[in-house]
Amino acid sequence: MADFWFQFLLALDSSIRVATPLILGAMAGIFSERSGIIDISLEGKMLMAAFVAAAVAYGTGSPWLGAIAAIIVSIIASLIHGFACIIHRGNQVISGLAINILASGLTVIIGIALFRQGGQTPTLPKSARFNSIELPFAQYFADNIPILGVVYKELISGHNILVWLALASVGITYYILFKTTFGLRLRAVGEKPEALDSAGISVSKMRFQAIIIAGILCGLAGVYLSTATGAGFVKEMTAGKGYIALAAMIFGKWRPVPALFACLMFGFLEAVAARVQGAEFPIIGEISSDLLLALPYVLTVVLLAGFIGGVSPPRAIGQPYIKER
């Protein structure tokens, strides 16, 4: 039993690690989509950022410079999306898809041109990465305080700074969206842009601000993948995480706190999937980890179909705003 609890604790711990890029991606999605811009390019932005973070961290030896460069590139990708969808009123899904495909190709091409390692970056030394931060007294508490001490050591201590940033981003997103004028306007621009326009606020400017914030958050998610959990960039390293973040955002009904729980749940599913591979269970028998990994997608489809409560996306989502003259 004790062993089970310890395993469970480790599964929770790895859920948080898996969920971190999902949380950052989901918050990015919330900013963008709440302003009325569909963002399926979370995946591509994360991928570009992951590459740039690793490349710059390798070149300069500083993970911080890598992170800054990654965020800048991710913002540029957001601006391309904005240029197409806000300025030229292009189809937002097509634009997002273009960025994703572009990211798949570009990261590998530039990777080969710079490092000649088949699209990977060289392995980063420890000094060029964001390493885990052991909280004070972790070992002491684990040895001396029953249960809580172990929880403190295994679950709370030992995460890198980006995990904390991701968790903080949920609170910040909530605060900005629901407690500030900017947030009110941002939500309004995704529901009824003409109302904002008649109040003399620029719809385009609001939407650009929203997608720039989304760019920053996706940038951080990419940084996490290649310079915190990973030690370098690998071809297609996001592997659909941007899409799972999108699913989590929908699952959380475009709200930061429920989206956080969706991310943690999806992260937990993945952590469990890694552990049950090949294991036999009473009654149900062997659980396929492949099918378990598909569960986030299935759940999102079921939710969207309205079988578990209703979902209503921002009303003006996907529609380019045409200013009346």
């Binding site: 292009g90 189809n91 898809l97 572009l102 190709g105 091409i109």
Partner: peptide, 25 residues
């Protein structure tokens, strides 16, 4: 040595961008 098939994926992305999202530019 430096160009692989990924170049085609990139070109594909650019074509989707310019003939899809920016079709009316």
């Amino acid at each position: 040595q430096t160009i692989t098939r990924d170049m085609v994926i990139m070109i594909q992305g650019l074509i989707i961008l310019f003939s899809g999202a920016l079709a009316y530019m």
